[in-house]
């Protein structure tokens, strides 16, 4: 093996995981330009869990929107399992839970959760079964026939999560999916999500504003800073998989929390001073 190859991340990770290389994103609106991302690099091995954390406006959503083929980066390349976002989307390899839990107001919860399967032309009976299973998982049993306008913000978020879960994606891209939930429910869904991830071996890229949630749900927390958006630090969380709520009591948990808080403070401090 040549030295150049040895320096690269492990081959398996590059082939199956998420790979973000020199991604730059400049939004143009008239004469005004915003550099949302300035040269980001990130490797996420297949089956691992990564959180993005950072101040508002540092480009977290932009990164997810690039990976889900909603916007194209100004330069650089994003790959999911070796596929470009466009190819990965065509093969339905990922599911996106966007920051604003999007629900079609004219569809009941059940039909909204079934949407992804319906678009993928999955037969009705299986669609129904998988949607009901996902609804059960996020604790929305009994609301299948409600319209989104009859749900609370947190319930809509859970419905959006259920819709993503029905797809059994290889890559789960979630943008602050638990933001509108109370602590208890958040905790329950965090561990429910971990259980599903272990079962499906999916790769998770999660945006969150909660330090403890980032620790619970990640093998690696990526800290970003704004203007221009970039990655300032990557912190490994070595709890392994098969986590239980007891990890909160682990002495390492507190240490990681303060380390992360420190890193976040730094990334914001950079901006102000």
């Amino acid at each position: 093996m040549s030295a150049a190859l040895a320096n690269q991340p492990p081959l398996r990770a590059r082939a199956d995981g998420i790979s973000i290389r020199d991604v730059q994103m400049v939004y143009r609106r008239g004469v005004q330009t915003t550099t949302a991302l300035a040269g980001c690099n990130l490797e996420i091995p297949a089956g691992s869990w990564v959180s993005l954390i950072g101040a508002s406006g540092c480009g977290k959503s932009t990164l997810l929107r690039i990976l889900s083929d909603i916007v194209q980066p100004t330069s650089g390349q994003a790959l999911l399992g070796g596929l470009t976002p466009t190819e990965a989307r065509a093969e339905r390899r990922f599911a996106l839970v966007s920051q604003h839990a999007v629900m079609l107001p004219w569809r009941k919860v059940l039909a909204n959760v079934e949407l992804g399967l319906e678009v993928a032309r999955v037969p009705k009976a299986e669609r129904r079964r998988r949607a009901e299973e996902a609804i059960e998982m996020v604790g929305l049993r009994g609301f299948e026939r409600a319209y989104p306008s009859e749900l609370s913000g947190g319930m809509r978020q859970r419905a959006a999560i259920a819709r993503a879960l029905t797809l059994k994606p290889a890559y789960l891209l979630m943008d602050e999916p638990f933001g509108a939930l109370d602590e208890l429910l958040r905790d329950r869904l965090n561990f429910e999500l971990l259980r599903i991830l272990e079962e499906t071996k999916a790769t998770l890229l999660l945006v969150t504003h909660s330090i403890s949630e980032a620790i619970i749900l990640s093998d690696k927390v990526v800290v970003m800073s704004p203007r221009p958006g970039r990655i300032t630090q990557e912190i490994d969380i070595d709890f392994g998989h098969n986590r239980s709520p007891a990890i909160r009591d682990d002495p390492r948990f507190g240490r990681l929390e303060s380390e992360l808080r420190h890193a976040l403070g730094h990334s914001m401090g950079d901006e102000h001073h």
């Binding site: 909603i70 339905r92 599911a95 966007s98 999007v102 079609l104 678009v119 993928a120």
Partner: peptide
Amino acid sequence: ADRGYHELLHSLSA
């Protein structure tokens, strides 16, 4: 229709 609805359908490869 809201742009978010279109983005949702787009991400689902509709």
